[in-house]
Design a protein around this nucleic acid. Structure first.
Lengths: 287, 287
DNA sequence: AGATGTGAAGCATTTCACAGCT
DNA sequence: AGCTGTGAAATGCTTCACATCT
């Protein structure tokens, strides 16, 4: 996806014509230049950098000082060429003949991902999923302090969850502005999602992680990512079906000869880039 | 995502030589043919088909009989050319000059995704996230009945969650075989994930949805998808950082002139294909 | 007219393979 | 010798634009 160069990218970039300047269209530097905005790091690489970061943190804890691209790639489940290319986007921090200094690399990736600045997070929809997000201290806290929780249910109001009292969705705008929230997580059911989203945006949130199975409408300066469990399940279903079909063609192994045969182990990952996700029906937990 | 053509794909396909037939290597149709196994539908398209399906279900409920590619695309947040190409992978079920019959299309997408066969699901790790998954009836039930729950915590054993009693992780293999579970969801903390995964596989599970921030090692016949919230957050963080940087270059709009300006609304989606995900640290909820 | 289905062009990402530093 | 960093080739996905069918 779980992800990549999804179509709808704001292709247009900026309006072709200069907004204010009325005059002669002719020779300005303009038109093609609009497109030259170097998007630097490929979207797909950004997602992997986050993975490398986790692996590197683990290595650092275990006192490892340096790693080769080969080793790091193995831990992250990618191949080494891809890893080196990904790292090359953020600069040259390796030492030829040696490898990468773990601490240095961690620092550089954090810088690139903007993790030096702590982004305050608000979670809307304190059902099971919301609880899961708010409760586990170690989760969001590594750079993403949860600063506010919102729900409709009056029974939840002011009850602290993971140390933070739940506020009313009516106060989203106000609270988000006060606490300078920049990232919003929507864990509400489908119905409330767009409304909550609008409020978060009005409250100054610029990035949204959406668990509700709807395509949110947002102004273009807002970035949305979607996580849709039902879609993930359906993708898995597709692969089971495909596998079964293939098995049908090649008779060979039929029975339920259980157990991992050779025990071969391959790295894994979401084998794709899942742009939009949705689901057949409400899947998210209670408001 | 999310889901497709990730590098590590089992390139090799089937063994180059015909499994059984020993004889002369010479003129068989073989060698290049191995590679010709049409992988048919692009992984990225599969993820979107699931989204179209959700939208179509909504339309059907509201009694809509037909839709044009333009309309359907708008609801799904993609452009119509992409939608038509995606649908073309599963066959020609539209009517030129008219559009698509909603019911027919639903049927065809369900068939393609293998949703006609109900896949039984097991959830391991009944913390907040596990509860979220197990509880909400409407979630997995649309084609994915939850057939088993597993946890380490003795206090949870036999306590029914969403109608299903929790079993011990020690019984994973046995229970999964008995209940013919084909899809496993891992919502445990990092530590237990690989162990649980091994057991699920031994119990006959062929697809795994993994919420733990580790790259699971699995035999190659098993498909794994990963959902990693920390990675999602970090990707968002990256975008905030990039945006701020750009804003720095182009002085223009500085202040906190809140509120959605024009109110422009663009469809959204995960702007990329995130193959592997991971996270800086434990993020998943309690076991 | 109106909308689908699809070759072909256009981009993006991945992989190869090797020059170049330590 | 070993391993990084990176052009260039290969692959895959998206968008265009139009022939084709109703």
């Amino acid at each position: 996806m779980t992800a990549h160069g999804e179509g709808e990218r704001d292709e247009a970039g900026q309006p072709a014509d200069v907004p204010s300047g009325s005059g002669s269209p002719a020779e300005s530097i303009a038109v093609p230049a609009a497109r030259e905005r170097a998007r630097a790091i490929p979207e797909a690489a950004v997602a992997r950098l986050a993975v490398y970061l986790r692996v590197l943190s683990g290595l650092e804890e275990r006192g490892t000082g340096t790693v080769s691209s080969e080793e790091l790639a193995a831990f992250a489940g990618v191949n080494s060429a891809k890893l080196r290319k990904d790292l090359s986007y953020i600069g040259s921090y390796g030492t030829r003949g040696v490898g990468y200094d773990v601490a240095v690399l961690i620092g550089q990736i954090e810088r690139t991902l903007g993790l030096t600045k702590k982004h305050r997070v608000a979670v809307a929809g304190i059902g099971n999923l919301g609880h899961a997000l708010a409760n586990y201290g170690g989760f969001l806290n590594r750079g993403f302090p949860v600063a506010a929780l919102f729900d409709l249910d009056p029974d939840l109001l002011d009850v602290p969850v993971g140390g933070i009292p739940v506020s009313s969705v009516d106060d989203i705008v106000e609270v988000c502005r006060e606490r300078e929230v920049t990232i919003g997580v929507i864990a509400t059911p489908t119905e409330g999602a767009q409304d909550v989203c609008d409020r978060l945006v009005e409250g100054g949130v610029v990035c949204i992680l959406n668990f509700a199975p709807v395509v949110l409408q947002v102004p273009e300066h807002v970035e949305v990512r979607k996580v849709d469990l039902a879609v993930e399940m359906q993708i898995l279903s597709f692969h089971v079906a495909r596998r079964n079909q293939e098995a049908m063609v090649v008779p060979g192994v039929a029975g339920t000869d259980a157990g991992p045969p050779g025990g071969g182990a391959n790295g894994n990952g979401n084998s794709d880039s899942a742009p939009e996700r949705g689901d057949v029906d409400g899947m998210v937990v209670r408001p």
